[in-house]
Simulated assay, not measured.
Amino acid sequence: MHTILIAAQKGGAGKSTLAAHFGAMAERDGRTLLIDADPQGSLAFWYERRAAETPLLVKVGAGEIEETLDMARADGIAWTIIDSPPHNAPLIGSLMSRATVTIIPVRPGPFDLAAVGATLDMARKLKAPVACILNACPPITREAETTIVSEARGVLTDMGAPVLPGQVSQRASFSHALITGQAVTEFEPDGRAAREIDVMWTAVTQLARTFPRTA
């Protein structure tokens, strides 16, 4: 089983949005379980509106995650995606130790870039595989990322953070899809948002498959 932890110690980074879309994409590669461990419950909100029966989702408290992962593995789940709570460093550290890879969504702004350092430091101390995704970015213009995104990528690189290629842009289609319980790849499969998510999930899976499956 591959476990993808989506973590950010700052709220508002877009963890739940990525978890929902990655969950829908992961189901194509095998049985997938979404774990909503964020007390805000945004992922569960999306799932309640979803017509499709897959991926599976469970909403759990911090003390239930380890048991849920054990049960998922025993049940033959191929991909588990965890939407973790912000502001809970001990829990995030514990989950990092178990995850195949931790994905950190980062908006291209000064507050988000300042906050990412603590999560990266935690990953380094634990020697946990990690990668950043530039999320909620201004859309690409003329096939080139905007200056603010390029600058943010440079800041993360200078911090020693692995950054996945591409970006996830701020687009209305994400909101339209989420409110109907869909991913953009279902709501508007030929749209730009769908292409960005497809490219990003492909990069995540390629990275995850370079590491051993989680126990």
Score class of each variant (00 low, 15 high):
G23Y: 03
A24D: 05
A24N: 04
M25R: 08
M25W: 11
E27D: 14
R28P: 00
R28Y: 02
D29L: 10
D29G: 00
D29W: 05
G30K: 01
R31M: 02
L33C: 01
I35F: 09
I35M: 06
D36I: 05
D36C: 03
A37V: 11
D38K: 12
P39I: 05
Q40Y: 04
Q40F: 07
Q40R: 13
G41Q: 02
G41E: 00
S42D: 10
L43A: 03
A44M: 09
Y47P: 01
R49E: 06
R49S: 03
R49T: 01
R49L: 00
A51S: 13
A51C: 02
A52M: 12
A52I: 08
A52V: 08
E53C: 01
P55C: 03
L56Q: 14
L56H: 04
L56E: 15
L57Y: 01
L57S: 07
L57G: 12
L57W: 05
L57D: 00
V58W: 13
V58A: 06
V58T: 14
K59R: 15
K59Q: 14
G61P: 04
G61R: 15
A62D: 13
E64L: 02
I65M: 10
E67A: 12
T68F: 00
T68L: 00
L69S: 07
L69I: 06
L69C: 07
L69F: 04
L69G: 06
L69T: 09
M71R: 15
M71H: 12
A72W: 03
A72I: 11
R73Y: 05
A74Y: 00
D75V: 03
D75E: 15
G76Q: 13
I77E: 03
